[in-house]
Amino acid sequence: MLEWTGERIIPKELKPTNGMLLEHIARYYFAFPHVRGRVLDLACGTGYGSHMMAKDRKREVTEIVAVDNDADTIRYAEREYHHQKITYRQGDAVDPDLPDSLGLFDTIVSFETIEHVRDESAFMQNLERMLRPDGTLILSSPFGRGRGMPTSEPFHVHQLTPAEFAGLFTRYEQVEIYYQRGVVFEKPREGIRYFIGIAVCMKRAAEQMP
């Protein structure tokens, strides 16, 4: 049985009012209008978010491939959040062979992942390689002191600043960045401190690719 570590969310082990659980669920609800076609949920954790997408977007989604690097977590997801449109796979987000293994996607969702990744460039390259032209990437990250700076979170390599987060998406044609406060997403307002950013990015059409 999986144990909640503060990083992998296990809804069945938490109170419905748990703040971190509500924030995680809210990110998937935020993504719903953008989710279509063949979908990748990279760093899917226990699978509850993939299952939410499969149920809510059943008419718009053809397949969801849900990937996590932990074998026990994938087994838990297969058991607790089975759905006919979801395939759970064990995989490393920075593995250079991952795009060839998984193929192309119309939508890629990856929440609270990049702060765990040492090779940020390899992670972003894999996302770009797996996203179809005109596809949509939805990526979130907590904010912090910036690259190379220590963080109080034991599982985080570092936490990007808002400017560093925005700089991840320069190769995308359309980028909208929102800030999360609890279960609310909004454009930044003066005087408000935000702890989480979420970006919705569209890849250039094939004829516009360099």
Rank of each mutant, 00 (worst) to 15 (best):
M1Y: 09
L2P: 12
L2D: 05
G6L: 09
E7T: 15
R8S: 11
I10V: 15
P11L: 07
L14R: 07
L14H: 07
T17S: 14
G19L: 14
L21D: 05
L21H: 09
E23T: 12
R27G: 00
R27W: 00
Y29W: 06
F30H: 04
A31V: 01
F32K: 07
P33Y: 09
H34D: 04
V35F: 05
R36A: 10
G37T: 09
R38N: 13
R38M: 10
L42S: 08
G45Q: 02
G45Y: 00
G49W: 01
D56Y: 12
D56A: 13
R57H: 08
R59V: 13
E60S: 14
I64Y: 00
D68C: 03
N69A: 08
A71E: 11
D72N: 11
T73W: 08
I74T: 04
R79M: 04
R79W: 04
E80W: 05
E80L: 04
E80I: 07
Y81T: 04
Q84F: 14
K85F: 12
R89S: 02
V94H: 00
P96W: 14
L98T: 00
D100F: 10
D100C: 11
S101G: 07
L102M: 08
L102K: 02
L104W: 13
I108C: 02
S110Y: 00
E112H: 04
T113Q: 04
H116G: 05
V117P: 05
R118V: 02
E120C: 10
F123Q: 01
Q125G: 04
R129P: 00
L137M: 13
P142M: 13
F143E: 03
F143I: 06
R145M: 12
G146A: 12
P150L: 14
H158N: 11
H158K: 12
Q159A: 11
T161Q: 06
P162Y: 12
F165W: 05
A166N: 06
T170C: 10
R171G: 12
R171K: 08
E176Y: 09
Y178H: 09
R181F: 04
V183R: 10
V184H: 13
K187R: 09
K187Q: 10
I192V: 15
R193Y: 05
Y194M: 07
Y194T: 06
F195A: 07
I198W: 03
A199L: 10
C201W: 10
C201I: 13
R204H: 10
A205N: 05
A205L: 08
A206Q: 13
E207W: 15
P210Q: 14
P210I: 14
